[in-house]
Design a protein around this nucleic acid. Sequence first.
DNA 1: GCCACGCTACTCGGATACTAAGTGTCCGAGTAGACCGGG
DNA 2: CCCGGTCTACTCGGACACTTAGTATCCGAGTAGCGTGGC
Lengths: 158, 158
Amino acid sequence: MGEGVEWAVHCCLTLGWLGDDQPVSTARLAAGYELPPAYLNKQLQALVRAGILTSTAGARGGFRLGRPLDKITLLDVVTAIEGPDEAFQCTEIRQRGSGAESPARSFVAPCAVSTAMRKAELAYRRALAAQTLAEVKVAAERHVPRLEDSVRRWYGRG
Amino acid sequence: MGEGVEWAVHCCLTLGWLGDDQPVSTARLAAGYELPPAYLNKQLQALVRAGILTSTAGARGGFRLGRPLDKITLLDVVTAIEGPDEAFQCTEIRQRGSGAESPARSFVAPCAVSTAMRKAELAYRRALAAQTLAEVKVAAERHVPRLEDSVRRWYGRG
DNA sequence: GCCACGCTACTCGGATACTAAGTGTCCGAGTAGACCGGG
DNA sequence: CCCGGTCTACTCGGACACTTAGTATCCGAGTAGCGTGGC
């Protein structure tokens, strides 16, 4: 999994702490985590395409949350960055070679291996979808007191 | 996720159908699924290193199951092929930049993002560990009747 | 006829190229605000 | 003093290099069985 996911989640949380009053530019977000600005911008563009963020161009432009954090799940972010298709891709190798002798039943019977892998991946996606960014934000604040104030202060009170 | 996982699972199932009487070479397994033999051999080597398979060199050599299929989980195969480390790697970007002002608490407080992602990935691994290759084999036989006979016949009765 | 030796064919195993996805960077299009001149 | 136009600075957005992981291949080390020669 690419590291863009980590960047995206942290940036969304930061946007949540700073509030939607005014957009935050890529440069400031990148400076906050010491990330390459241009590449971070690429990831944020993916979030915009997914509707998680909204972007405003021009001077004093930047990124804003597209909807409140409790309406954004971890699955939304992962899907936006990593793409919609799941990790395990069944290439139907069972139909090649020895399985080729019976082409008739090839398309009706599901691949047992694929089914088993999909079951696990579904559990993964369910666990991701069950967690909203609002919950993650609360957990972070619970671990570190005064976190929101600290962030707002660092970014120049948002 | 690499396609080697699919190859590995199918090969293990085939070895289960053929029985452990005599080892099966890479060439025959590769011919059964029309896969590149040398590369498949590489994946099988990974399974041997993980203890899932045992290899015997020399003429009439090949691969055998290291233990019965009901003692091999999907997680075992995935870990053997993809490696032990999990997909999401926390690089602790929260400590860089804005978070650097408080280095003291950096190592005590866990990263909320990492915790959330790990929770999902744990669900994934649990779902993988809950399924043994024996169960997958039974499922495949349920979908396609006479499957074992068909496989044994294609491989020259094992 | 039986046994020991050597030989060949076959297999795994790791070292070596090739390809694609992920990572990182740069430059152009567009906009909002600021500055300046005129009324 | 107020308003409109222009101009600049800043931002997003996509197009262009670079690096690492994954894919594919080849060749060497080692072994089991078979053939051959000797006893």
